[in-house]
């Protein structure tokens, strides 16, 4: 299962205007790991994610997916292996109907009609969106769009799932549903998120980015206990690790 491994070595990205978005980033993610990349706004999380399937090209350094280094020649294979869900579903949905949108990836993979049908049906059922099949993406609510966007990637059966802010814009129930769905996905998962409670729930490993650099990389529990580190990176503990707001308010009133 070596193709489920993601490795970055001394990666750097400089935008054309000279902004250094990523400085000397290295990590190694192995098969089946669930890793969160967290950090303040502008820390370089989304830029980093976009390198993992070649949407952006590193200015220097190297990325390997399994045994394959990411180059122009290996891009089609890598894009088949790494499924990426973008932050805004509106960027991801571009076909006239939900069915056609979910079928876009499998059709590009050259699958037969019956296989495409099966993949689309399964992917939509997985995200609880089977009833949206014939609808137009622009008629869906935010949560529905997000679920369909995830289905578009699941339909390609990726080995590695990369998601930029998966729970943003979802209502609490849809967020719970999505989290249970992601828990079931057995392959390698990489998320960026500001939803630190989700990170605590789903990811055993967390990488903190700050100003384009990796500030910490380790078990999620340990990282969230380090308040000094979190504060230095403009982060806070997840709500579930903070004191109960009701009890602590009562405590403040009595003291």
């Amino acid at each position: 299962m070596s193709h489920h491994i993601v490795e970055a070595k001394n990666m750097q990205h400089v935008y054309p205007d000279g902004t250094i978005a990523i400085k000397d980033v290295s990590f190694h993610i192995t098969h089946g790991e669930s890793v969160a990349i967290i950090g303040a706004n502008g820390a370089g999380k989304s830029t980093l994610l976009q390198h993992l399937n070649g949407c952006l090209e590193a200015t220097s350094g190297q990325i390997r997916i399994g045994d394959t280094p990411l180059t122009k020649g290996t891009l089609p294979d890598i894009r088949r292996t790494v499924g990426m869900v973008f932050q805004y579903p509106d960027d991801q949905l571009f076909m006239p109907t939900v069915f056609e949108d979910v079928a876009f990836g499998p059709l590009n993979q050259g699958l037969s009609d019956s296989d495409v049908d099966r993949r689309v049906t399964e992917a939509l059922a997985q995200v609880g969106a089977a009833h949206l099949r014939t609808k137009a993406p622009y008629h869906l609510s935010g949560g529905e769009k997000k679920r369909v966007a995830i289905a578009t990637v699941l339909a390609m059966s990726p080995d590695i799932l990369v998601m930029d802010e998966p729970t943003s814009g979802l209502d609490p129930f849809a967020r719970r549903q999505l989290m249970s769905l992601l828990r079931e996905f057995r392959h390698t998962k990489i998320f960026t998120s500001h939803d630190l409670d989700m990170v605590l729930d789903l990811c055993e490993r967390t990488i903190i980015m700050h100003e384009g650099m990796i500030m910490a990389d380790g078990p999620t529990d340990e990282i969230f206990k380090n308040e000094t580190l979190l504060a230095a990176c403009r982060l806070e503990k997840p709500f579930s690790m903070q004191g109960c707001p009701v009890c602590s308010r009562g405590h403040a009133q009595t003291s």
Binding site: Q50, N53, G54, C55, P76, R79, R80, G83, M84, F86, Y88, D91, Q92, F94, F99, E100, A103, F104, G105, L107, N108, Q109, D113, V116, T152, V153, M156
Partner: peptide, 18 residues
């Protein structure tokens, strides 16, 4: 961004209809 999303799903300049 849309083009990037298309590339990420294996678009190589050829359109397929179901």
């Amino acid at each position: 961004r849309i083009h990037t999303a298309m590339l990420a799903r294996g678009f190589v300049g050829r359109f397929h209809t179901h």
